[in-house]
Computed example of a mutant assay.
Amino acid sequence: MKYTLFLLTLLCILTGCTQQEATSKETVTAYYKAVAEGNYKEMSRLISDSITITAGDYVMPFNKESYYEQFKWDSVFKPSYKVVSIESDSEQVIATVAVSSLRFAFLKNNPLTCSHKIYFHEGKITKLEEITCKDVNWDVWQQERDSLVAWTARNHPELDNFINDLSMKGAIKYKKAVALYVGRGGE
C-alpha cells in the first residue's frame, strides 16, 4: 500500500512538472480561435486586465469590461476571422489575420488582412499593434465612410453620430445606416 501511494504521489509530481505554461504562439493561436468562435470568456482568459489596440495613429486602451463592449460592437457586423500566419521568436509574435465582415464589405475592403505585433506580460496579451494591412485601399475606405456619414446626417438624423459610438447601440445604428444607404435606390 505504501509503495502504491508513493508511486501515485511520484506520478502526480512528475505529471505536474511536465505541464508548462502555454508559449506566446500558443496563446495567440488560442486567442484568435476564441475570437473566431465569438468566445469572449476564453478571450478574457488570455488577455491581461488591460489591453491596448493600436492602429495607425489610433491608440485604444481597454480594461476587460470595455474590451467586452468592443467585442459586442464588432459582433454586430458578423465578422469571420481566418489566421493567415503566426510567426514567433523568443521576443515577439506577429499574427496575420484576414477579417471579413458586413462593415468591411460596405467599405470595399473585404477581407481586411492585417499583421499585428502582439505583446505579453506574465503570459497574457497586453497589446495588439497593427503593423500593416495588406491590399487595403484606405482612400476607398474613407470615401465610402464619408459618403455614408454625410448621407445619414442628411436623410436619417436619428442615426447620426453612429461613426463615433463604439457601443453596441452605435454598431446597430451603423449597420442600419448601411442598410438604408445601400437600399436607397438611386437617391
Rank of each mutant, 00 (worst) to 15 (best):
E69N: 13
I86M: 00
L7A: 10
A177V: 03
T132K: 13
R154P: 13
R184C: 04
Y174D: 09
T126R: 04
V28Y: 02
Q20S: 11
L10N: 01
H116M: 08
I13Q: 01
S48T: 04
V97E: 04
Y31L: 14
T52Y: 01
G38H: 05
Q19P: 00
A30K: 08
L128T: 05
P79F: 05
D165T: 05
S100H: 04
W151N: 01
T152R: 02
L11W: 01
L166V: 13
V93R: 03
E65D: 13
L107P: 02
K176V: 07
K82E: 15
K64Q: 06
E187A: 08
R145D: 11
T18Q: 15
Y81M: 06
L166E: 06
Q143Y: 11
F71P: 02
L7C: 10
L10D: 02
I53W: 03
T126S: 08
F62R: 13
A30Y: 01
N161Y: 07
Q92M: 12
I13E: 00
T15I: 12
K173N: 15
D160C: 00
S88R: 04
A34F: 08
R103K: 11
G170I: 11
V35A: 12
E129R: 14
R154N: 14
L8R: 00
A105Y: 04
R184I: 10
V136Q: 06
V76C: 03
A105E: 12
S101F: 02
N137F: 08
